[in-house]
Design a protein around this nucleic acid. Sequence first.
DNA 1: TAGATTGTTAATCGATTAACAATC
DNA 2: TAGATTGTTAATCGATTAACAATC
Lengths: 222, 222
Amino acid sequence: MTGNSETKEHNDKILRLPTIKRLPTYLHILKRLKAEGQEYVSTTALINELDFKPILVRKDLVLMGLPGKPRTGYCLDDLIKAIEDFLGWNKVDEAFLIGAGALGSALLGHKPFEENGLKIIAGFDIDPERVGKVIHGKKIFHLSKLKEMVQRMGVKVGIITVPWQAAQEVADILIEAGIWGIWNFSMVKLKTPPEIVCHNENLAGGLAVFSVKLQQKRNQLL
Amino acid sequence: MTGNSETKEHNDKILRLPTIKRLPTYLHILKRLKAEGQEYVSTTALINELDFKPILVRKDLVLMGLPGKPRTGYCLDDLIKAIEDFLGWNKVDEAFLIGAGALGSALLGHKPFEENGLKIIAGFDIDPERVGKVIHGKKIFHLSKLKEMVQRMGVKVGIITVPWQAAQEVADILIEAGIWGIWNFSMVKLKTPPEIVCHNENLAGGLAVFSVKLQQKRNQLL
DNA sequence: TAGATTGTTAATCGATTAACAATC
DNA sequence: TAGATTGTTAATCGATTAACAATC
């Protein structure tokens, strides 16, 4: 009971998406500093490794709700723990990944997921070339087994890396099977009931930004 | 001459990052509609496949600078071309990818890059297990050959997918060799001179957002 | 004409930045 | 004490949304 209300206090804070996206960057630096033997960290120390404005970082850290000491900064261990708790990276979610192509295979072997509480336990595909294989230590099953396995194993998270034509169909299977959350790497907007947590990853957005920057450079040189 | 000034007109428009990130999503739907045989498209038609607000989409499309006809919308072909020009996806940039691990291998085989003007022509690594291999049709060379090959082949783009400890070192080699742009998938901020186009991709940000959403769901159920 | 849609101008909202007080 | 840093409150900036005029 007490545990629950503590958790709630933590999560009642206003979560702003831009802040959440910056937290992993902070966390990475904090862990490096810890490995270097530091005990305390100030925003000024963090900023050395970043290109964010100092006040942005301070505001973000204040949201973590830790007491910082003027002149010394924050206790490094506490800050790391606070960020991990905030992100839920201390709790493990088991996940299935559907679509073992180039992108899917990479995610199957992507260590940061497992290190940060998202444990992919198997993959699914329909290509006979892929079904039965083991990729980065994870077995690939046929899609036809997905529903039954989700239900039997109580898996709550699905990662969709299939071609866009198949994405909605896969989502429907996952939802029918009782999944909680879907991380969608395909290019289509999925139709999902409101109680399902659905996060669309827009990989092409990054390419677009990089392309535009390159083009500006190209035009400068003309 | 005339060609250049045309290009400039195009690029003198204020490029806002949020808009740029949405363009690939529009483009994808537009191409689908074209494949279905449509000739014109209205924002209302686009919105059916999206969860953006109508006015957002209209504003974005207005930035493309095309004349839209009330009641019919935009000419589909013109709109597709305008967005591709805007993104520079009609011009091909050759790229080297450094770091042929799980993520790097996926990017070597990621079709949208090549389809959208970013042609990865080879990979580099230091792991003897990887050097000499061919991954998704692209040969992996030893890192020691990077500088010479960049110079000899005139490659202007580098994609960094090495572990964070090695990222700066790789960036330094690329810059020395005369690269224009770096797309950095590692977790560290690279120190680069201002004339180098450098885009940092924050993959962990997506995981963070998804994790927080999942945690909120978990807390709801408690 | 009526209605759907484009395109523009103004209002709101939210995120970042700045200024400053508090603290060790 | 002086100075570096935290933490808060106010100001600015930019993106989204709303309202409305123009057009076919």
